[in-house]
Each structure stands twice: as C-alpha cells, then as structure tokens.
C-alpha cells in the first residue's frame, strides 16, 4: 500500500546492537517490524542506512524457519499480499521486497488465497505491486535450475 511509505516503522525484538560508525543496526530474537500495514517477522534483522538516510533491511529466518512479510494491497477493501523466504531484503528507497530461497508469495482476498507463486527468488515492488519470479537465488533464471510454480485463481465475479 502506498500510504505505508510515510508511516513510521516500529520494531520489536529481544536484543538490539547499534554500530554508530558504520550505521548498522542489528535486531535479534523474534523480530517484528511493522510499518503501516506492512508486517515483517524474522529471527534477525540487519538494518543499514545509506548516506542519504534511506534504510535497507535484511531479514534472516531462524535456522529451518522462514522470514515472513504481509502487506495490504491497494485497489480493494481487503486485498493482502503475503510472502515468506529464508532471507528477505527490503529496500526503503525503491520499496522493493526481495525474497531469497524457498520463497513463496500469496495474494489474498480477505483470508482466501487468490494466487500463489513459488520460486527460489521473488522480487516484489510494493509501490506498483509488480512481482517477478526466478528460479535461482541470483535473481535471474538459470536454465535447469528448478521450476517456478504459480497457481492463479480465476477472478470470482
């Protein structure tokens, strides 16, 4: 949702470390990062700030677990998008969410999942709500590196 961009982001975690020289903030232990309707959960979040003040967050899942994110979509009363992966990168400047390895993205209407996408790498531009899926963590599809599975539900009128 576009309105999320201007909202302050809240973070909850068990521990927090700040290295003021390198401007690196690390949250560890059941981290919940919320910003407007965007909710991200992970075991460890590393936030770096670039000189112009934009923040870049990398979410690491607990070993064996998945980092998840959920955000409301524009263009409808109850449209949501959810994603999970072993590592999620969120760039505050471009508002692009990148999901790495065992990535899955679901679009929901209320609680009903309308379409699902699985792949090794999914990038989702939350500003224009466009996402691209590749079968390799590098971000570009490699031949033979695995299949992309997508289930797209017909629009129920």
């Amino acid at each position: 949702e576009k309105a999320d961009a201007d909202k302050p982001s809240n973070v909850e975690a068990n521990q927090f470390t700040l290295d003021d020289v390198k401007q690196v903030k690390i949250f560890t232990g059941k981290v919940i990062l919320t910003r407007g309707t965007l909710i991200m959960k992970a075991d460890k979040v590393v936030v770096t700030t670039d000189p112009s003040g934009y923040q870049f967050a990398t979410l690491y899942a607990a070993p064996g677990g998945l980092a998840t994110f959920r955000q409301k979509r524009d263009g409808g009363p109850d449209l949501w998008i959810e994603g999970e992966a072993e590592r999620i990168e969120y760039d505050d400047k471009t508002e692009i969410v990148k999901l790495f390895s065992k990535a899955q993205m679901r679009r929901l209407q209320g609680t009903k999942v309308t379409d699902v996408v699985n792949g090794q790498f999914i990038s989702y531009d939350s500003r224009v709500e466009f996402y691209s899926v590749n079968n390799d963590v590098s971000g570009t599809s490699q031949p033979g590196a695995g299949r992309i599975k997508a289930v797209i539900q017909p629009k129920s009128k």
Partner: peptide, 10 residues
C-alpha cells in the same frame, strides 16, 4: 525486550 520506533529520516 527491545521496542523501537523509526520515523522516516527524510
């Protein structure tokens, strides 16, 4: 138990 609130810097 850490609670943080970030305002967008710019």
């Amino acid at each position: 138990n850490v609670r943080g609130t970030y305002r967008a810097a710019i």
